[in-house]
Structure formats: C-alpha cells, structure tokens
Design a binder for these strands. Structure first.
Length: 322
DNA sequence: TATCCGATGGTAGTTTAAAG
DNA sequence: CTTTAAACTACCATCGGATA
C-alpha cells in the first residue's frame, strides 16, 4: 500500500550520501557518483559541485556548498552514520543501502531481541520487514542482508516456514500511550516516539494473534490504532479491538484530522476494496463513533481511502488524545 | 525441455597504504 | 599533500546440475 509520492521522493543511496559528506568534510570526493541524476543536476545547474580542473574523476565543492549541505543533508547523514556505527556496521561507501533500507535497519535494530527469537526463512522476513522491496530482496542484496545478519547476530536465516510472529517496537521509557501502527512508516521516524512520549508498535502484517500474549504490564497504557482508512485497515481494527477487549483493555482508532488527503481505491499498489454487496462494507457500525462513521460512509460512497502515512502522526495524535 | 538454484569468476567501485 | 597501486567488497552475468 504505497502511493505514487513514494516513487517521486528522492531516495538517496548511502554511497551518494557519503560522497556528499566527503565533499563537505574534505571538499572533494573520488566517488563514482557523476552519473547519478541529482549529482548531474547539481553539476549542470549550480556551482555547488564541479569537476576538478585537470582530473575529471574528482569532484570538488564550490561556493555555498557548505551551507547547502548543512541545510539539506547533514542531519540525515549524521543520523544514519551514528546508527550504522552503533549497530556495528562499518559505514563505508561500498554499502549500497537506500535511505529506506537504513531506516528499516533501524527498526530491526530497535526490536532485535524480539526478532531474534521469532525468525523464519529469509523470504518471509524480507517480504514482511522489507515490504517495499519484496520477498526476494534480502536474498540478492548482499550488503543489506549482511547488515541484518549482523544486527540479529546470526550467521544465516533459518529454513523454517512457520508463520512469523513478531512485534516491532520503538520504545519510550515513560510513555503516556501506545500507538499500534498498521504500517511501519511511523516507526521509521523514531523521533515521533520521543516527541509524543509514546511507544510505537507494529504487529507483523495481518498477524495480530500475538496481541493475545502481550504482557499485562503493557496494557496499563492508553492504546491507539493508526491505520490506512480502507476496508482492510478498519477490519483489522475491529479484530484488534475485540482481542484487547478480551484482555480488559480499550483501544481507540486515530481519526485523521481535516483536511483529509483522499486517494481513489484503485491507486497504485492499493489492493483493499470496499465491499458493496453489504451495507457499510460489512463493518460493524457499533465499533465506530458517529464522527468516524461519517468519514467511513463518505469513503465508501465515493470509493476512496486515506493512506496512513499521509497523516502527520503528531497532528493526528493530539487531535485524538484526551 | 524449461526452469530454478547455487557456485563461480569477472567487474566496478571503495578503502587503505605506499610512493611521488 | 596528491597520486598511484594493491587489497577488499559487493554486484552481476553466466554456467551447470538438479528438479519438475
């Protein structure tokens, strides 16, 4: 479930980020990045980067590059660099991670203990954790696979084929709530947890059975659910709500604040469809407040959905938090 | 026969260290 | 300090065996 905007956003690879940092720290780089579209643009349209006179293999920083780098890349680079060191992954330019890969590695690192105990085969892990890239991804991306193996402190993935049961968590020591997220996007922005003073949970795919075994201690916090507002997301919410009810706990769905960014149900990579054979798409009206029902009715009527990650978590949380 | 899978070797790119 | 050379790492195409 991904919108087109993902494809448009510039997703730099680690070698490029590192080369840009070299240009900042050493004023030059020999990295082979001159064919990268964005670098070509900088060379052709600005004075920020240029080939060194007499040696076209070397790029040098021009006037204003320092300020440009600090404004656009420095904080992200430092963030990734510190993480890779912390995880014991040598941050050299040979690691062809994408930014999304690194953010995913961060989530894996945060939940490494839980994941270690619940591993299955590499295709399953790749498909569920690297869902933006598919089940074959880890197998063929050596540097990413090696990074995962390093983080989990294992030599290889097991061959087993049981269902993967895991919970990805971004922790906060004194949380005022737990937000359960259908997708991993908010977990990849762990500053959310700090800013909002919450814990973020992602339960593996459609596998919410693990909620039956959550430690009692966790259930004392107010719980919220963040999801795509499509049939699939809302239906999962109903099941989660009922599971937690059995544990004596309530959970509140996070309603997106206005203005809503509606998307058509047939958008790219969106597979969830409303069921027009039954009223209210077969959802239980009792589960939702009148305001929530109003939004859902509109979505069904106009065949729309709201993607979880188009919402700003902070705004959505304070809109719902009491 | 066609396809899948793992092994293998070549290649491109990076890093490190030595030489200029 | 800059350039060159060697060592290393990851990527990719290919090949042959196994399997359906």
């Amino acid at each position: 479930m991904k919108s087109l905007k993902k494809l448009h956003s510039k997703d730099f690879t680690w070698p490029v980020l590192k080369a840009l940092n070299d240009l900042y720290e050493k004023k030059k780089t020999t990295a082979k990045i001159q064919q990268v579209d964005y670098i070509r643009y900088l060379m052709a349209q600005t004075e920020l980067i240029a080939q060194k006179k007499g040696n076209s293999n070397i790029l040098v920083a021009g006037d204003g590059y320092k300020e440009y780098y600090e404004a656009n890349f420095q904080s992200a680079y430092q963030y990734y660099y510190n993480f890779l060191n912390q995880a014991g992954i040598r941050p050299d330019g040979g690691k062809n991670f994408t930014e999304e890969d690194i953010r995913t590695l961060m989530v894996i690192y945060e939940s490494r203990n839980e994941l270690r105990g619940n591993l299955t085969n590499i295709e399953d892990f790749s498909g569920k954790v690297f869902d933006y890239a598919g089940s074959k991804y880890l197998k063929f991306r050596n540097s990413v696979r090696n990074a995962v193996l390093k983080i989990l402190e294992i030599d290889e993935f097991p061959q087993t084929s049981k269902d993967l049961q895991y919970r990805l968590v971004v922790d906060y020591p004194t949380p005022k709530a737990i937000i359960l997220c259908e997708n991993k996007s908010f977990l990849k922005q762990p500053w959310n947890a700090k800013e909002l003073e919450v814990k973020l949970w992602h339960v593996g795919g459609n596998n919410i059975a693990i909620l039956d075994n959550i430690d009692e201690m966790e259930l004392v916090y107010p719980m919220y659910y963040s999801c795509d507002w499509d049939f699939h997301g809302l239906e999962i919410f109903q099941r989660i709500k009922s599971k937690l009810k059995n544990r004596g706990t309530e959970i509140q769905i996070l309603t997106p604040p206005s203005p809503h960014q509606y998307l058509p149900s047939d958008s790219f990579m969106q597979n969830s469809r409303w069921n027009y054979k039954v009223p209210f798409s077969g959802l239980d009206k009792e589960v939702f407040s009148s305001k929530e029902r109003e939004i859902i009715t509109k979505l069904i009527k106009e065949d729309l959905w709201i993607e979880e990650e188009t919402n700003v978590l902070k705004d959505m949380f304070y809109y719902n938090f009491k």
